[in-house]
């Protein structure tokens, strides 16, 4: 017999880990990209032409990783009782 309370608690722990690392990722990538580009803004004229490429790839990294993590969470939630993940 599966202990449902234990399973939901463990699932919350998994979600917590994912939220924590995603939060760190948002903070650090935003901080780094913003600081480097803003430091060079005005000093490097070519940056005025190419900055959108940096923003596009920054959004791609953050966006795809976030969607991927949501999928991982949903997958664990869907299969945790069938595969008895937390026994």
């Amino acid at each position: 017999m599966v202990d449902e309370a234990l399973y939901h608690n463990k699932l919350k722990q998994d979600a917590g880990v994912i939220m924590l690392v995603l939060g760190l990722l948002y903070f650090s990538e935003t901080y780094i990209v913003y600081n480097i580009l803003s430091t060079l803004w005005g000093e490097v004229p070519a940056l005025g032409t190419i900055w959108p490429i940096y923003i596009v790839f920054y959004l791609l990294v953050i966006g795809i990783e976030t969607i991927g993590c949501v999928r991982v969470y949903n997958s664990i939630k869907e299969h945790m009782f069938d595969f008895e993940y937390y026994d």
């Binding site: 690392v21 990722l25 991982v72 664990i76 299969h79 008895e84 993940y85």
Partner: peptide, 15 residues
């Protein structure tokens, strides 16, 4: 449990 360990470990590693 590869169906949990691989996606979770892989994505955590990538981040």
């Amino acid at each position: 449990h590869p169906t949990r360990a691989v996606p979770l470990g892989q994505q955590a590693g990538m981040i």
